[in-house]
Design a protein around this nucleic acid. Structure first.
Lengths: 144, 144
DNA sequence: CATAAAATCTACAGACATAATAGAGTTTAT
DNA sequence: ATAAACTCTATTATGTCTGTAGATTTTATG
């Protein structure tokens, strides 16, 4: 049930971009890497993936960098995690975004599937309803 | 966020043991393997792990097999998953059973940690409050 | 006692995923 | 022209996952 480093770094970087008050909204890879203690070349790949998923925009060349593709309240943590770590569902037969049959004779009466459906819902209830703006707010107010 | 095959097979086997009505409560590896379509030698390791964790008892020799160490209502799915797949927490800094610091400068104000704490709670709210007896009940009543 | 059924234990192997690292290429401001 | 910055592809090292193999121990039973 664990989040990969890729997912963790990606979330940290996006939260950094949503909360960084250092002036312009455009930020360089190496600055995020330094602030968040992430290997720069690894972060490079991660941000590129997030860009290709439409969550980030970028500007090349001198003075370039990354910035959020939408306002922080429009980007959910669920989108970020799915982009970097794949489906939230513990088993694919309860995935909304990437369903696959899991081979049990009858999915309607499969006990495992019923419970895993609940787990999937519980996870997505948190990650899909929490935006970067929500995270920023909680950080300011010290974690309510 | 996914459940390993080991975890899936272990859960299926435990649910099988909790619901099997074929006569005696003691069941052989190969019977479970056949019913649940699990490679027998792999299941062997899994059941041994569950036994060493105190969730199963066994009897060697002719007429032997495995049986639940407690009644189905006393075994939660959380115990099974933790035994086979490790901590439920997405990141170790929010794990109850296996806490480790994750290196953020201040855990109290770490946005990622706040959210992952909620995810951990959501997962354990499902898995730690659902027993094998609960699963058996839902299977009979067709999934409420 | 011999035999077969069954769990126990250890080792290993192949495939895949993870977590990076490397380096060449492209775009852009100055 | 130069340097800053993103882009893209490949490669590597490590580990985990999934499973297989085989030898060992325990026990019921004829």
């Amino acid at each position: 049930m664990r989040l990969s480093k890729r997912g963790e770094y990606g979330l940290r970087a996006m939260i950094d971009l949503a909360t960084w008050e250092g002036g312009s909204p455009i930020v360089q890879i190496k600055d995020i890497a330094e602030r968040e203690h992430i290997p720069a070349k690894f972060l490079e790949q991660i941000l590129l993936t997030l860009k290709n998923a439409g969550l980030l925009h970028s500007k090349m060349g001198v003075g370039g960098g990354y910035y959020l593709a939408k306002t922080p309240d429009q980007i959910s943590l669920g989108q970020i995690v799915r982009t970097l770590d794949g489906p939230l569902a513990p088993v694919r037969c309860v995935s909304q975004m990437a369903y696959e049959p899991c081979g049990c004779p009858d999915e309607q009466t499969c006990g495992l599937r019923m419970v895993m459906f609940d787990v999937r819902s519980a996870i997505s209830d948190v990650l899909d309803t929490t935006s970067l703006a929500d995270v920023a707010l909680r950080m300011e107010s010290g974690g309510a």
